[in-house]
Structure formats: structure tokens, C-alpha cells
């Protein structure tokens, strides 16, 4: 039996400090974001500078991470690729957030048949593999980064809607929401101005957890050739392009972007899970 601590007593304890793993992940993400922002300053070469004479060079002073089969500098490409690879998931999550939060809040607020319809819809979408859905849309509208982001945005909407619905349901039971209704405020205004803002922390925490997954999905699409189209590039496309070099014995062109993906995804998951735990323990 451990000694309980008194309520409302004492300074913040060690539990509030971030564990070492989270600190490392935080640091990694800061470095990655800075690298993406400062790519033009940091990259030694233009990302699309082709130098066939330097094809598949290993690490060395000229090319810190070597080159790919077209002689493009891998470090430069990974730095520039970070821009697409980080911005695209943010865009797709923004789409999913706007649609998902709206649907989820609507379902939680109206209840009844609205809730039934939204819940059934999200369940069906849930059961349907997101990537398959995306590929179907791309099959209709054609490949490309824009289509991929839009399609994945739609594919992530049910997840966000389901989560929003559950947190909105418990939040709307709180008397302060009742109080707005008793004041004579309309439902739409209560939801938009007071209910959803109070869910903000939970929803943003959830989106952070989704970020790593979204990045993976986009990289997968690019790898499959549905996403980024040459000459523009992201890490997924780089892995795909680098694959051919593996046969020729050069591992770096596939490994460098692959490692970048893994680093960002793992870091986001570590931070996201920690944030979700903390939010959870606060409720």
C-alpha cells in the first residue's frame, strides 16, 4: 500500500517532467522541422541537380550521404523531401479535422437519427481499409499529391469523427453546457463557440498521434506511385526510386529516406502516446 498524497498539496512532483524518451523525441522533431524549414540553407546541392558522373557515390566529403542513380545528392533530397513529407500530413489532417470534428460534434449534439446515420457511416468507413479507399479515389481522379492528400483526408475523417463524438458526448453532459442552453443560446453557437473549443486539447492530442500514421500512409502512396510525382519528390517516392539501386549494391538511396520516415513516425508516436496518456489521466 503506497502512501496517498494529500489533495491540493505540494509543488508539482517529478511525475510532471517529461521522460527521457519523450525529450529525445521532442528534440528529434524540432531538428527535423528546422531542417525542413532551412533546407535551402543547409542543402549542399539543389535537390534536382543531376550529375550522372557521380551516380551512386557512397558517403564521402563531396556527398555526406552519397548520391542516387541519377547522381542527385541524397542529403539535399532528404532535406527538401522533408518539406513535402511534413506539410502534406498536416494538410490532410486539417481536412480530416474540419470534417471529422463537424460530423462528430453533430452526432454527439443532435443524437437520435443524426447520430445513428453518422455512426453507421463512420463504422462502414472504419471497416473499409483506408488505403484501399484512397487508391479507389486515385483510380478515379488520377494520381498526384493533391489527390492523395484529399483522399487520405477523407479516409481519416471517420477516425476523427468517432473520437470527437466520444469526447463531445462526455463534455456535453457537463452542466456548463446545459447552462448555455438555459441562457437561451442556440445549439450551433454553443457547439462552435464553447463545446468544440473545450475539446481542443483532446482533439489536438489525438491528431498528433495520427500524424505519424498519416505520414506513413502518404509515403506508402508515393512509394506505390500514387502520390508525389517526379520531378517533385517526397521520402516515399525516394525509397521507391532507391530500391532499384539496392540491386546494384547501393543501400543508401533507399535507407536514407526510409530512416527519415522511421525517425519521424517513431518520434511522433512517442510524443503522441505520452500526450494522450497525460490528457487521459487528467480527466
Amino acid at each position: 500500500m503506497s502512501a496517498p498524497t494529500l489533495d491540493r498539496v505540494g509543488p508539482k512532483t517529478g511525475k510532471d517532467r517529461r521522460p527521457a524518451g519523450v525529450m529525445i523525441a521532442d528534440g528529434t522533431l524540432v531538428v527535423v522541422v528546422l531542417a525542413a524549414l532551412l533546407a535551402p540553407l543547409l542543402a549542399p546541392y539543389a535537390p534536382d541537380a543531376i550529375d550522372l558522373s557521380a551516380s551512386l557515390v557512397g558517403t564521402g566529403p563531396e556527398h555526406l550521404l552519397g548520391t542516387d542513380s541519377s547522381g542527385q545528392d541524397l542529403l539535399s533530397r532528404v532535406l527538401y523531401g522533408a518539406r513535402t513529407s511534413l506539410v502534406a500530413p498536416i494538410l490532410l489532417l486539417a481536412i480530416a479535422a474540419v470534417l471529422g470534428v463537424t460530423l462528430g460534434t453533430l452526432a454527439a449534439w443532435r443524437g437520435g437519427w443524426v447520430d445513428t446515420v453518422v455512426s453507421r457511416l463512420t463504422d462502414v468507413m472504419y471497416a473499409f481499409p483506408g488505403l484501399l479507399f484512397t487508391v479507389l479515389i486515385i483510380a478515379v481522379f488520377g494520381a498526384g499529391m493533391t489527390t492523395s492528400v484529399l483522399a487520405l483526408g477523407l479516409a481519416y475523417t471517420p477516425t476523427v469523427a468517432k473520437y470527437t463524438r466520444s469526447v463531445a458526448l462526455s463534455e456535453r453532459r457537463k452542466p456548463y453546457i446545459d447552462a448555455y442552453g438555459v441562457q437561451g443560446m442556440g445549439g450551433a453557437r454553443i457547439c462552435a463557440r464553447y463545446l468544440v473549443p473545450n475539446l481542443g486539447r483532446s482533439i489536438i492530442g489525438y491528431l498528433v498521434v495520427l500524424f505519424g500514421e498519416a505520414l506513413m500512409s502518404l509515403a506508402t502512396l508515393s512509394y506505390l506511385g500514387f502520390g508525389a510525382q517526379p520531378p517533385s519528390s517526397d521520402w516515399g517516392l525516394m525509397v521507391q526510386e532507391g530500391q532499384a539501386a539496392v540491386v546494384q549494391g547501393a543501400l543508401l538511396p533507399a535507407l536514407v529516406p526510409g530512416f527519415a520516415i522511421a525517425l519521424v513516425v517513431v518520434s511522433f508516436n512517442v510524443v503522441g502516446v505520452w500526450a494522450a496518456d497525460r490528457l487521459g489521466s487528467r480527466r
Binding site: 500500500m1 496517498p4 494529500l6
Partner: peptide, 14 residues
């Protein structure tokens, strides 16, 4: 309540 906890010695660590 703290007085009761003292009788059980379930007091905070520090």
C-alpha cells in the same frame, strides 16, 4: 482527514 491518516500512518512520503 489528515489526523485520521496519521492513525493509519498513510501520510505522504515527504
Amino acid at each position: 482527514s489528515t489526523t485520521a491518516r496519521a492513525a493509519l500512518r498513510t501520510l505522504p512520503d515527504r
